[in-house]
Write a protein that binds this DNA or RNA. Structure first.
Lengths: 190, 190
DNA sequence: TCGGATGTCTAGCACTGCTAGCATCGAGTG
DNA sequence: CACTCGATGCTAGCAGTGCTAGACATCCGA
């Protein structure tokens, strides 16, 4: 391999990272509506067409941000889960970590699970970040499955958390009862 | 009141209804992306500015569609609930009605609970359709509250249903396990 | 029949995502 | 060293978006 080509590929990868980071920062600071191709290009100090030499379209950029964020969430869930021996405490810690992530980084949560970015869920070729995140949920749910199918129960828990996360974000649930909702969910779930 | 003015108000109200209906039909047929002010104006056979003499902006039109749909959902939930004497059967019927509505009319469900249309939830001056819908949930949950706060438990159930509805719509749950998820949720909930 | 208010439309603004086509620059060859 | 030629990034522009100013017509009451 010619070293010049290697250098170019390095620079290309670096710029790729730059674009994704800029999109994430802009979205977190001002919401996804503020993430236009023009503002993004200005931010990375290149012209608009450069974005399209890295990504097929704007959705692909959002998708890249979402995937990175899902990886981050998976790590946090793992940390929460492994910090406790008791299955019940692990479950509570993971639920808190999940809802805390959604509440403190709403733009990222939107990109991950609300906007239509079809990240090819479920299928065999799901991205590893997705599989890792779902795996954390499965691991924490498993002790409580009983006669129920573990994956089904996991989907039910995930849905319950996702519902609270999104309805919280839309201010459709009483904010001062957040703790109570989590406790009720867990008490019925275990 | 001058009869001419009355006639004009009647015609205005009729056109208002026409716009909302056209927006709903277009959204259900081709998704909200297809609902542009131009296409909407063309559909009701008026020019764009006419829309703005009825609604402050496009969001207000979406909001009107959402409110109508919430009223419809409330009716369906009421019918499902009152069709059964047993609290458990009433709960299952209501859950099925809710998820069926979300699955068969995804565009409407989006407008109601996913898009940011801030319909002023929770507050005292919530629209009656919203209060009616939430009231149906409260009524069906009440027999299962036990020591838990009824409203809190209702919010938890709603979140669980909402989570399944949205994740189903995004094809993020296994489609052929839908029934099993509902049963698991209800069995843990009661 | 006329004046004025009411209603509607045409035309346009500032913005969006995206792309065609043109410079410019640098690497490899004679 | 000179030169070609391909890669790279830019300018400019297209078609579409939500929304609005201002011209125009139409109809009512006097």
């Amino acid at each position: 391999m010619v070293p010049i080509q290697e250098r170019r590929e390095r620079e290309r990868a670096e710029r790729h990272r730059l674009i994704v980071d800029a999109a994430r920062e802009l979205a977190e600071a001002e919401g996804w509506d503020a993430v236009t191709t023009r503002r993004l290009a200005e931010r990375v100090e290149y012209s608009q067409p450069v974005l399209y030499s890295h990504f097929k379209n704007k959705d692909a950029i959002v998708r890249a941000v979402a995937l990175q964020a899902i990886g981050d969430l998976a790590e946090r869930m793992r940390a929460a889960r492994t910090a406790h021996r008791s299955p019940a405490k692990a479950l509570r810690a993971l639920a808190d970590a999940y809802l805390d992530f959604a509440a403190t980084r709403p733009a990222l949560y939107d990109a991950m699970f609300v906007r239509e970015v079809d990240l090819s869920f479920g299928t065999a070729e799901s991205p590893p970040e997705l599989r890792a995140a779902f795996g954390e949920l499965v691991a924490v749910v498993e002790p409580f499955a009983g006669d129920d199918d573990v994956e089904t129960l996991t989907e039910v828990l995930w849905s319950a958390l996702h519902g609270q996360a999104t309805l919280n974000q839309g201010r459709r649930l009483r904010p001062d009862h957040h703790r109570a909702r989590v406790e009720v969910l867990l008490s019925r779930f275990c």
